[in-house]
Amino acid sequence: MDAVIFATGYRANLDFLRGTGALDRQGEPVQRLGVSRTVSGLYFVGLSGQRALASATLRGAGQDAAVVVRHLVR
């Protein structure tokens, strides 16, 4: 399995995904619970409001990562 982990820092900066179909017109990821709805094999962790109010915090990102990993294992 190949993987790329890209950390953008304290604020999401997903401009590098423009033109891939992964973002909506406002530049927000088209995703549900961290799984891209438009690009197969693309996942997100740590987005504001991804799964819970705490998703963009260290505490919430860990729980969101667990959801993404469960999806990958399937």
Rank of each mutant, 00 (worst) to 15 (best):
F16T: 05
A56Y: 09
A65E: 01
L14K: 11
A7Q: 07
T57P: 01
R11D: 10
G9P: 06
T38H: 05
G49W: 02
G49N: 00
G46V: 00
Q26D: 13
R74N: 11
D15M: 07
V73D: 11
G21E: 14
F44A: 02
G21A: 11
A54M: 06
N13M: 11
G41M: 04
R59I: 14
D64Y: 07
Y10I: 04
S55I: 01
D15T: 15
A22F: 10
G9A: 07
D15H: 06
Q31V: 05
L23S: 15
G41R: 15
Y43P: 00
Y43D: 00
L53N: 04
L33D: 13
Q26P: 08
S48D: 10
L33A: 12
N13W: 14
A7D: 08
R18A: 09
L14Q: 08
G49D: 02
G21C: 12
V35R: 08
G60Q: 00
D2P: 14
A61P: 02
R74S: 13
R37Y: 03
L23Q: 15
Q63T: 06
G27V: 04
G27D: 10
R11L: 10
A56P: 00
L72V: 13
G27M: 06
A61M: 07
D24I: 04
I5M: 02
Q31P: 03
H71Y: 14
T20A: 07
V4P: 03
L58S: 13
R51K: 06
Q50K: 01
R51T: 09
G46K: 01
L42K: 09
G21I: 14
A52K: 06
L58C: 08
A56F: 05
A56T: 01
Q63S: 05
V67Y: 06
G9L: 05
L23A: 15
R74L: 09
G34I: 14
R59Y: 15
P29I: 12
R32M: 05
R18F: 07
M1C: 10
P29A: 06
A7G: 15
F44Y: 06
A56D: 03
S48P: 09
A52L: 01
R32I: 13
H71W: 11
R70P: 02
G19D: 07
E28M: 14
Q63D: 14
V73G: 06
V4E: 05
V4R: 15
Q50H: 02
G27A: 11
V30R: 15
L17C: 11
Y43E: 00
G46Y: 01
R18Q: 12
L17G: 08
L14E: 04
R18I: 03
G27W: 11
A3D: 04
T38L: 03
S55C: 03
R32T: 13
G9C: 03
T20M: 09
A66S: 09
G62Y: 04
T20V: 05
G49V: 00
G9M: 04
G27Q: 14
Q31Y: 15
V45I: 09
A12P: 11
E28T: 06
V68W: 09
E28H: 12
R37N: 07
G19N: 12
T38G: 00
Q26M: 13
L53E: 04
V35N: 08
E28V: 08
S36P: 03
A65W: 01
V69T: 12
G49R: 03
R18W: 02
R32S: 08
S48W: 11
T38Q: 07
A61E: 01
